[in-house]
Each structure stands twice: as structure tokens, then as C-alpha cells.
Nucleic acid binder design. Structure first.
Lengths: 239, 239
DNA sequence: TAACAAATCTGGTATAGACCAGATTAACGA
DNA sequence: TCGTTAATCTGGTCTATACCAGATTTGTTA
């Protein structure tokens, strides 16, 4: 059977969490305490904790300790609902913080996708989003201001889909999505307040104005970096 | 800047791989050799290698060594193309191995989704799929034989979507998809020949026969366990 | 030459320490 | 009471070493 020592620790905490003996958000004993309890060295303890982290059962806060992961939110990037509505419908409290907003010349990739000349200004928006005060998502968005004049003067901590609907009478439900399960790049890990190399989910989204394949107008290109343990993606495909 | 020792190793190999000085599939020096080269202990070396693994740049084979990860395949679960066509179109060689096939009584979850009584027999199909001889995906499928009579007598290493199309004149493009980035459960890691706890991508797919929301007929429920470094998911949403 | 056994190489697991830097808490002084 | 400082706690990084089990290679033997 699975008899290595670190697996015993893993099972121990797995069961505590499954049985709700350890509730979401609560703190685990320190690595040194666990080591004493099981008569194992810290390295062995850390191996177990890192595996539990990979499973998404626990997460760490830099030099503060290990904590039980709250349940993942179900998120549908293609939904009519915004992040805010989604999260609150699931009984959690969403919030959004704007980290940066500026006009930037489009790089080659962005320009090609948007069908605009390179170095045309686009609106860069950098946001951090929270679920129950826990930072879970970094967004970096490039917005086609040619299609959305004046958007830079709006409150950009709110839901973009709401804003487009209310101010521009636009709804985008045509998009290309790319998902990749990989570790968080340094900048995203930094923004999330965790150490680089933690596992994450990387989403690239290209939002189109129309569903005309021959005249694709790109409203917005969105890069999302999620904590891997914070979200389950749900998409319904209907023809 | 990022000055810890293991980060130096990480950068070193990152650059070798980026510059194609180390090609996909090639073997890294052993942990002990790397340690000698950098005058660092094996624990430090392993920290670097584990981070590179989390980034998807390298992967390990149990007690054989560390290898450079081949480029990820782009996969669209909602596509008209099958896994086989997808992979070969990207210049790689797909193959499929049937690990198990049997009639099983439906459990509560399956029965509810399929709208059949619990313990009604469903066809369980367990497959392993390879890209260029590398096992990357474990599939566990539950097939509604009431809608697909005689399917258990077909060759089930082939593409299911092809089979449904040819034999039953069915095409399913209505589905619910769930993605979760998490470590591989023990059974899947085992089937993939890697140690448990490695990062993975978990997909649950429910395939419907029609797009009638009031009369959902479930053809098949599919659980997919992917190596996290083997695939990028791509989905196009059009209304 | 083919079959088998032994030596070797690899990562997997583990011990027993050590020092650092950031976060938290306790103690102290105004 | 409030603000600052110092002690303490926590995970982050690292050295040095050891033994194990599976995979591979080498060597030997029939």
C-alpha cells in the first residue's frame, strides 16, 4: 500500500479536511509542529504539504502558514453572467481592484488579432479579483478603443460586460478561449501575493463583436491567471 | 533579483530549452551530475527541476530521468475533429489503447444524468491515448447503450465520434464541459506511468444527443485525465 | 549467440541539522 | 492609550548524507 511517511501525513490531513474537522480557511499547524507530531523531519512534512497543495486541498501564505482551501468557484467564461454575479450567486463575495490602466501602443500580436496597425493605442487594463478577500485572479486586458470610444473614462473596477451592455448596447458571446494548466508566471504570482512557480490556470480569451467569420472585429483580448485551486471552468456547447 | 540557487538552475535549463540547445524529448543530466556542476546539493537541484516540471518545460519518468517536454497539442473537445485527426494534423502520431471494457450497473450520478434507473447497465470504456508514443491521456467513459445498441461489439480503440457518425449517423455537438486544474488521482497517474500527485488537467464531459433543453438525452459521460503539460484547450464560442 | 545474473545508474524517500527574511506578537516606553 | 521596538514564529532556502527500488547496462555463462 501507500506506505511512505509523507503519504501518511497527506492522508491524515485529507481526511481531516474531508470530514470538516478542518474548515475552509483554517490554519494548519506549523511545519515544525507537524514534524514533531509525526516524528518526521520538516522536509518530509513539506513534501506532504506540497502534494496537498497540488491537489488543491491546502494553500500557503508566504511565511504565514498553510490554510485549508475554500471550495472552488464554478466559472463560465462564456456566460452571460459577469464574474461578480457568478461569484455572488455561489454565496461568496467578489471584489475587484484596478492595478493599472493606461493607453499602450499595440504590440504585433495584439495588432494582428485586432486588425489594426502596430502601435495603435489600445487600452491596457490590469486588475486583481478576489473571492471572499482572497486574491484568486489576475487579469490583463487589451481593449480596442476604436470600437469602444470613451471607455477609458468609465469606472473600470466594475464588470466589463455590464459596462459594454449599458453604455454601448453590446454583448459579446463570440470568443476564442485557450486554457493551459501551468505554473503562474512571476508577475502573476507576485500580484497574487504568492511565491512564483505555484500551479495555476492560464486563460487567453479573444472577444469578438460579431459572429461574422469574414469580418472579425476584436473587442478585447484578455489574459487571465487563476489560482489553480480557486476555480472550476464550466462551458456548455450548444449548436 | 531572483538570486536563490535553485532559480539559477531553473534559468539555465529554461534558456537551454528555449534556445533549442536541448530538444524536445532529450534527457537532462542526472540530478547528481547537475548538483556537481552547480556545486549544489540534490535537494536544491530537485527544487529547480520540480519548478520546471510545474512550468511544463520538463517531465520525469520514474527512475529513468528528466526529459524535455514536447510542445503541447492544441485540443478542442467541442470540435468536429476527433482526437486522432487533431493530433495528426499537428504533425504528431496519435494512438489509443483499450485498457478495459465492460457492462456496468450505472451509479447514482451516471443514472441521474442519463435519466435511467440506477443499476441499469452502461458500457464502461477505459482507454489510454498516446501522442508520439508518450501516454498523455486517460479516458474513462460511460456510454448509454440504450441509445447505441450493439456498440459493445465494435472496435473501441477507434475514434468514438467517427464510430457514432458511421454506424449510427449521430453527431454530438451539444455538451457540458468541466475543467479543473489539479493533481492526477492515483489511478490516472498509475495508468500514465507517472508518480501520483503530478499536476494534471481533469475534464468531465457530458455529451447530449439533442439540443432540446427539456429532453436531454445523454449519449456518454466522459472523464479525461491529461498530463498538464501535454495539452492546451481551445474552444470557440459562437452564437 | 542467447539467456541470465550482477553491477550500476536513476530518481524516490528520509534524517538532522542550519541560517534567512518576512509576519506576527509581546514588551516597552512616551 | 498608543506607537515603536524587540523577540518570536513561520515558511523559504540550503548543506551533507544515507538507503531504497526500479531501470538500465554490463558481464558472465550455457
Amino acid at each position: 500500500m501507500s506506505s511512505s511517511h509523507y503519504q501518511q501525513i497527506q492522508r491524515y490531513f485529507s481526511e481531516l479536511i474531508a470530514n470538516k474537522a478542518l474548515l475552509a480557511g483554517s490554519k494548519l499547524p506549523s511545519e515544525r509542529e507537524i514534524g514533531e507530531q509525526f516524528k518526521l523531519t520538516r522536509i518530509t512534512v513539506r513534501q506532504a504539504l506540497q502534494n496537498l497543495e497540488a491537489e488543491g486541498l491546502i494553500y500557503r501564505q508566504n511565511r504565514r502558514g498553510w490554510f485549508v482551501t475554500p471550495p472552488a468557484v464554478v466559472y463560465d467564461p462564456a456566460s452571460y453572467l459577469s464574474f461578480n454575479l457568478y461569484v455572488s450567486e455561489q454565496g461568496c463575495q467578489p471584489s475587484t481592484q484596478k492595478l493599472a490602466q493606461q493607453l499602450e501602443p499595440a504590440n504585433a500580436h495584439i495588432a494582428t488579432l485586432m486588425g489594426i496597425p502596430e502601435k495603435t493605442p489600445v487600452l491596457f487594463l490590469h486588475r486583481r479579483r478576489y473571492i471572499d478577500q482572497r486574491p484568486v485572479l489576475i487579469e490583463k486586458m487589451y481593449i480596442n478603443i476604436a470600437l469602444l470610444p470613451g471607455i477609458e473614462n468609465e469606472d473600470l473596477t466594475q464588470s466589463l460586460s455590464q459596462l459594454l451592455k449599458n453604455k454601448y448596447q453590446l454583448e459579446y458571446h463570440n470568443m476564442d478561449l485557450f486554457f493551459k494548466s501551468t505554473s503562474l508566471p512571476a508577475h502573476a504570482a507576485n500580484d497574487l501575493g504568492i511565491s512564483a512557480g505555484q500551479p495555476g490556470l492560464h486563460i487567453e480569451r479573444i472577444n469578438y463583436l460579431t459572429n461574422d467569420e469574414n469580418n472579425k472585429q476584436v473587442l478585447e483580448i484578455d489574459y487571465e491567471f487563476w489560482r489553480h485551486d480557486a476555480v472550476t471552468i464550466n462551458i456548455s456547447i450548444r449548436d
